[in-house]
Amino acid sequence: MDQGFFGKIQNMDRRIIYTILFAVLLVPMFNPIGLPLRISDVTQSAYDTVEALPPGSLVMLTTANAPGTAAELEPQSIALIKHWIKKDFKIIMWPSAAEAPRFIDGYAELLDKSGYVEGVDYLVLPYLAGNETVFGSMASDLKGTFNMISPGDSALWDSITDVSDIDLLADCGGGESQLWAIAHIEAKHGTPTICLITAVILAVRQPYYTSGQFKGIISGLNGAAEYEVLARVPGQGASGMDAQSMGHLWVVFTILMGNIAYFATKGKKSPGGGM
C-alpha cells in the first residue's frame, strides 16, 4: 500500500533516529556553540544556603551516587565539595547506596589534595545497608548507628554529639533518600537540607522545596553547571550543556514531526501505537 510521504516518515526505522541522536549530541561537543546558561531559582537557593554558613561549619554529604546516575550527580557533588572547601567547612561524607563508596573515595582524594586531613577536617563514614532505617537511626542515635568508630579514632567524630551538631545536610541521589533525609533528620532536628538530584525527579521534589523542607535543589547536569558558575568552581557540568541543548531540540523536533505525520495520515490506515 502506498504510505505516502507522511506515512513513510511516521514509520521511519528507529535506527535512523538513534544515529541522528548520536550525531546531534556529538557535533556540539566538537564545535561548542556557547549557549547562555540561566541560573534557576532552586540552584540559587542551594548556593545561598551554603554561602550563608560561616567558615568552619560542619556539613554532611549523604550520597547514593551510582554509575547509572553519576553523569549528573558527580559534577554536582564535586562543585558542591569545591565550594565547601572554599568555605573551609568540616565535612562528613556517608555513602547511602552500595555503589557510592567508590565515588566518595574520589571526593576524599579531592579533599586530601586541598590540604584537608582525614579524621580532623573531614570524615568518611562506612556504608550501611538499610536505606530509610539508617536515616531514622542516625536521627535518633548517630554515634550508636556508627558504633564501629571508637572514641579516639577521629577528632572530628569525637567533637560531635549527635545529628543536631550538623549545620547543613546535603543529600545526593536519584531515588528516595532525600525524602528520608527530610523525614527523619530535618524534621526531628531542623537541620537545613539541600538535595542534589537527577533531573528525572525534580518535578516530584519541587513541592518539598516550595514548602521549605528543602532549602535548595541542584538538579541534573544544568544544576551542576549553574552551581559551578555561582560558586566560581570550574568543572564538568558546563561542558555538556551545548550537547544537552541540541539533544533537547532534536527530541522536540521528533515530537512535532511525529504528531504532524500522525495528523496528516489520520483517517488513512496506519499502524503504530500512540498515547
Partner: peptide
C-alpha cells in the same frame, strides 16, 4: 529527557 541525555553525553 534531560536526565537521559546527560547519561549519553557522559
Amino acid at each position: 529527557i534531560m536526565a537521559r541525555l546527560s547519561l549519553v553525553i557522559a
